[in-house]
């Protein structure tokens, strides 16, 4: 656990110093969701039917785009090398980085999602499911996306490649996340689906940081 809290504190501090990195994904999320009524139709029934997919896809894209910079600046400044030669388990420092990133980028998405859901005519009764689904789903999206980010960190024009690598891996989270909301709309029990999302999260959190650490080592040439 050595280095975990120091890294967590530092990441939060870094985000405070350049708040755009934190605010932009949130802004992106809101803008993308509000494009859909304009593009399709403002009819409430249609919006309600589309809402789960729209919100989840927008959240997924926002998370993915925010991850491109997760390791890139560190790599460019040589901080990543320092992280790799430090006598700490990379597992925990990586976990700290992801946790900080989720607190600063993922959590705001979760908090703003009910407002967008309401705007897309979702009944208030399902907004809880929306939030808990995102609460369980966005950390998994962070971890899975960070695997891609670790593999593309040293590459120029890596952000397009990141999307190509990561989006297929996001499909289960998307299916279960949007599916849980769809079931809530039909007044079916959602807890089993949320449990599956939780299981995916547990798998991602336990194995993901290993893959990310390995990916970072591979990207720096080991």
């Amino acid at each position: 656990m050595k280095g975990f809290s120091a890294t967590l504190r530092r990441e939060v501090l870094l985000a405070m110093r350049s708040p755009a990195e934190v605010i932009n994904p949130l802004f992106f999320f809101v803008v993308v969701v509000s494009l859909f009524p304009l593009a399709v139709s403002p009819a409430p029934e249609l919006l309600r039917e589309m809402a789960p997919g729209v919100i989840w896809v927008a959240a997924l894209l926002a998370v993915m785009l925010s991850l491109d910079g997760l390791f890139r600046t560190d790599e460019e400044t040589g901080v990543l090398d320092q992280l790799l030669v430090a006598p700490v388990e990379l597992y925990f420092t990586v976990l700290a980085k992801i946790l900080a990133h989720w607190l600063l980028v993922g959590l705001p998405l979760v908090l703003v999602a009910p407002v967008l859901g309401y705007m897309l005519q979702l009944p208030v009764s399902v907004l809880g499911t929306l939030m808990s689904g995102l609460l369980l789903g966005t950390p998994s999206l962070m971890v899975i996306g960070a695997i891609g980010a670790s593999l593309t960190v040293g590459l120029r024009r890596g952000s397009m490649l990141l999307a190509l690598l990561v989006l297929p891996l996001y499909i289960p989270v998307l299916v279960f996340g949007a599916g849980s909301l769809g079931r809530a709309l039909e007044a079916l029990p959602v807890n089993p689906v949320l449990a599956v999302l939780g299981a995916v999260l547990a798998l991602a959190l336990s194995l993901g940081p290993f893959a990310i650490a390995l990916g970072l080592r591979i990207s720096t040439g080991d």
């Binding site: 695997i147 593999l151 297929p168 891996l169 289960p172 893959a211």
Partner: peptide, 12 residues
């Protein structure tokens, strides 16, 4: 890199 991605992909 491709090895790591394949392993992650298979689990996925």
């Amino acid at each position: 890199a491709a090895s790591l991605l394949s392993v992650v992909g298979v689990i996925n």
